[in-house]
Design a protein around this nucleic acid. Structure first.
Lengths: 131, 131
DNA sequence: TATAAGTCTGGAGTATACTCAAGGGTCAAG
DNA sequence: CTTGACCCTTGAGTATACTCCAGACTTATA
């Protein structure tokens, strides 16, 4: 597929896609069409890559980190040990993030309970939810 | 406390603190000391505010959103209904984030299992974990 | 075969979140 | 009363992640 279709499928703008390509986050092939500036052609695996980028972004990674993770991953692609190491590290980081998220959720729920019970006693403090 | 102590306590740089103040995210009092450019004095509640900012940041909110949330929160401070509404909305957004996080974790765990079991069968695909 | 639509590159512009430096006032210790 | 540590403001600079032209070429449609 060409870039505009890829944009539709992934939900990214054409500009953003070209930006990602320039950063090395996406590596589409080139078509024979387009003359001196050949058109880019995207494969389904590029769609997966784009989704992965978006996911990692919502998880708080910068494009630089995402690129590094990808390269690190590909570098150890043929070494299961290295791959496992990378994956475990990622899991650790995400679990840390999840803890912060859970703390926030617990805090918010605590505050709701506090309000619904007529705001008796002290207001919940964020501090207390840092398990 | 003065700004350098506040920086130590919160882990923020003095520059960052002043930047947050300029954005309205922090509102310390002014001391009588300091002459024509009075020193800022920070209270314990400012420390809480700073912690809240940091937490919201790790949750993916921009400073603009954090400011808006705070103002929205203070605006409805004396209306329990409005406060509950704001809190529930926040919870909803965080749960959405948590789902993305869980999907990523499940995916990573799946990949680890797949590798440890000798990479038999197809590799896990992110797609499948979007419950 | 005109013309609209789609693609390319290169470069400038914007928003966010800091970060640093200059220049100057204030405070506490010796 | 000097000196070093600390505070102030203003404004410029940096990194990230886009976003938006301009100008030129290519392709598909009527």
């Amino acid at each position: 597929m060409l870039i505009s279709e890829f944009a539709k499928v992934t939900g990214l703008s054409v500009d953003t896609i070209r930006f990602y390509i320039s950063k090395g986050l996406l590596n589409p092939d080139r078509s024979l069409k387009g003359g001196s500036n050949p058109y880019r052609v995207f494969k389904p695996e590029d769609v997966n890559a784009a989704r992965m980028i978006r996911l990692q972004q919502t998880l708080g990674y910068s494009l630089g980190e995402i690129l590094a993770l990808g390269e690190e991953y590909r570098a150890g692609e043929h070494s299961p040990e290295r791959t496992l190491e990378v994956l475990r590290l990622q899991i650790e980081r995400l679990q840390h993030r999840k803890q912060a998220l859970d703390a926030a959720l617990t805090f918010l729920h605590g505050k709701i309970d506090w309000i619904e019970s007529g705001q008796t006693g002290p207001a919940p403090v964020l501090e207390e939810y840092k398990s």
